[in-house]
Computed example of a mutant assay.
Amino acid sequence: MKKSLFTVEPISVLEETVLEEFHAVHRHAHGFDFPADPPVCRASFIGQIVRPRPGQRISVWVAWGDGHPAGICVVGLDDNNPLKGADLVFLSVHPEMRRQGVGRTLLSAAREYLGGMGVKKLTAFTSSSAEIGPGDAFAEATGAERVARYRRLSLNIADRPRKDGYEVPVGYRLARWRGGVPAESLAEFAAMSTRLAEDEAAGSGRGAAETFDAEKVDGLYAVLRAWGLRTYITAVRHMESGLLVGYSALGMASSHDRDASQWDTVVLPAHRGQGLGAVLKEANLSWAREHEPELSRVTTWNAVGNDAMTAVNESFGFRADAWGSVRIWSW
């Protein structure tokens, strides 16, 4: 293939036509790498650029070739403490423009900018169907260090009859919410989310855990709604103390009717060992299916080595997904 010419520059004015072109690049790249997955949701992709998570600031670089985007790089910085590190939100190169240095040049531009600000760490996720996929080879070749490994699992709804007869342990009561967390439960939900983040940080070695408060949780779900995501949450309340002690959350992109993502399931330590995690997953899936009649697949992620959680998910019906080897890298 003849080598194409391209130029890389930061971009601050995100006009609608440019965002549509960015989405086209990312859609083609994702479709090429993951042909078995549903197409990238436009609303979710664009939303993550124009309406980032609470407390996050977005920076964008684009590689132009023949007047059109050949690749894009989107980085998220903590608005309150940018020096603690940055996240690589997207790094996508159009399949026809690969192996020409587009990805390396975009990454180099982003890292130079971050270095000039004093940011010392950039974190990214890669996914592939192979043990070492193209994204992993790229990360290694550009000097990244692998921090953690995850495995994607999928649940085929057709293989699993609906179960509405789950039994809630004595002394507990379930609550169900769509689209977010009610105001009276935000503080308790934030405390549980912080505990989950602490557990994940301890297991992955990614450093300090993210902390949550009521305002941040409320803002996060407002952003998810802006991205077009439909969310389903089932929480469990301990009747004697009156406190929320666990929850399970699931989300679906606005353009996806058949595919959902199983997000966090957390039970506070003092209430573990009673099967609450399985009950929460079961109840929440049933809750989602009431409103999503076409739902046919749910995906989730397990840290490699977390055999206990893998066993829980497999007992629930999840199976290893051929397209889902996921790793976290840090430059």
Rank of each mutant, 00 (worst) to 15 (best):
F6T: 06
F6C: 04
F6D: 04
T7K: 13
V8C: 09
V8I: 12
V8P: 07
V8N: 03
I11W: 01
I11D: 04
S12E: 15
L14R: 08
E15D: 15
E16S: 15
V18W: 08
V18R: 04
L19Q: 08
L19C: 10
E21H: 10
E21C: 01
F22W: 05
A24Q: 10
V25M: 02
V25K: 01
V25W: 00
V25Q: 02
H28N: 15
A29Y: 05
A29V: 01
H30E: 13
F32W: 15
F32P: 04
F32R: 10
F32L: 12
D37Y: 11
D37Q: 13
P38M: 10
P38G: 10
P39G: 09
P39M: 11
V40E: 05
A43I: 02
S44C: 14
F45S: 06
F45N: 00
I46G: 05
I46R: 09
G47I: 02
G47P: 02
G47E: 02
Q48Y: 10
Q48R: 14
Q48E: 14
Q48P: 04
V50S: 11
V50A: 11
V50N: 03
R51M: 07
P52K: 06
P52F: 03
P52C: 09
R53F: 11
R53G: 04
R53I: 03
G55M: 08
G55D: 07
Q56T: 12
R57F: 09
I58V: 14
S59V: 11
V60F: 00
V60A: 05
V60T: 09
W61K: 01
V62G: 03
A63M: 04
A63E: 03
A63W: 00
W64H: 01
G65P: 02
G67N: 09
G67T: 08
G67I: 00
H68E: 14
H68Y: 07
H68N: 09
P69H: 05
C73Q: 06
V74M: 08
V75M: 03
V75N: 07
G76F: 06
D78K: 00
D78N: 15
D79Y: 03
N81K: 14
P82H: 03
P82S: 04
P82G: 05
L83N: 09
K84I: 13
K84L: 12
G85I: 00
D87W: 15
L88N: 02
